[in-house]
C-alpha cells in the first residue's frame, strides 16, 4: 500500500512551491550562472523535501529554507567550474547575509508592467537575450548589430528597466 505524505510533508510541499521564486532569487544572487542556479534550486528542493521532518511549523519557513539553499550554493561552488568562482568566498558570505529587498513575486509583477512600457524593439531585444541558450553573439547577428553595440543597447535597457521597477516598487510600498 503506498505511503501517504505526512501533514508536515504536505505543508513543506506547499511552502516550497510558494517560495520557489524567492529561493531562485536568493540562489541566483550568489550564483549568477542561470543553469547552475537552476540546478542548485532543484538540489535545494530535494534537500528541503528530505528535511521536512525537521521543520518547525511555528517558525518562518523562508529563513530555514535559505540556510539549506546556502549550503547547496557552497557545495555547487566547490564542485562546479561553471561559476568560475565569480565572487570570492568572503563576498559570497556577505551577499548571503544581505536581506532580500523585495519578494520575487512583486518583482515579477513590476517587471511585467515595465516591459510593457519599453519601446517594442527594446522589449523584443531584452526578451530575446533571456531565451534559453541565447548569446550576445547570436543576437548581434539576428539584430544586424555588432556584439559591442548590442551589449551597449542591453545595458541601456537594463538601466531603464531598473529605474522603472524601482519607481513601481516604491509607489506600491507607499
Amino acid at each position: 500500500m503506498p505511503e501517504s505524505p505526512t501533514k508536515t510533508e504536505g505543508q513543506i510541499v506547499n511552502l516550497i512551491v510558494q517560495h520557489q521564486h524567492d529561493l531562485h532569487h536568493y540562489i541566483l544572487s550568489l550564483l549568477p550562472d542561470r543553469a547552475l542556479a537552476s540546478d542548485v534550486l532543484q538540489e535545494t528542493n530535494l534537500v528541503l523535501w528530505n528535511k521536512a521532518h525537521e521543520f518547525d511549523p511555528s517558525r518562518p519557513f523562508l529563513p530555514w529554507a535559505l540556510t539549506f539553499a546556502f549550503y547547496q550554493v557552497k557545495a555547487a561552488r566547490r564542485d562546479s567550474s561553471r561559476d568560475r568562482h565569480l565572487f570570492d568566498d568572503d563576498l559570497i558570505a556577505s551577499l548571503a547575509a544581505e536581506p532580500m529587498d523585495c519578494e520575487a513575486d512583486l518583482m515579477d509583477k513590476a517587471l511585467e508592467n515595465c516591459l510593457r512600457k519599453l519601446p517594442r524593439t527594446q522589449r523584443k531585444l531584452i526578451l530575446a537575450r533571456y531565451q534559453p541558450g541565447a548569446s550576445v553573439q547570436d543576437l548581434a547577428a539576428e539584430f544586424s548589430q555588432t556584439p559591442n553595440a548590442l551589449s551597449i543597447g542591453l545595458l541601456r535597457i537594463r538601466s531603464s528597466l531598473k529605474a522603472c521597477i524601482e519607481q513601481q516598487l516604491s509607489s506600491s510600498q507607499a
Binding site: 521564486h21 531562485h24 532569487h25 541566483l28 544572487s29 549568477p32 542561470r34 551577499l95 544581505e98 532580500m100 529587498d101 523585495c102 520575487a104 518583482m107 515579477d108 513590476a110 517587471l111 511585467e112 516591459l115 531584452i126 526578451l127 530575446a128 533571456y130 531565451q131 534559453p132 541558450g133 541565447a134 539576428e142 537594463r158 528597466l161 531598473k162 521597477i165 524601482e166
Partner: peptide, 21 residues
C-alpha cells in the same frame, strides 16, 4: 541585488514562455 532580482525575474519570465527564437 536589485540588478540580480531583475535578472532573475527575466529568467523566470523567459523560462516559463516557449522560445520565439
Amino acid at each position: 541585488l536589485r540588478a540580480i532580482a531583475i535578472h532573475g525575474a527575466l529568467i523566470r519570465k523567459c523560462d516559463a514562455a516557449p522560445s520565439s527564437l
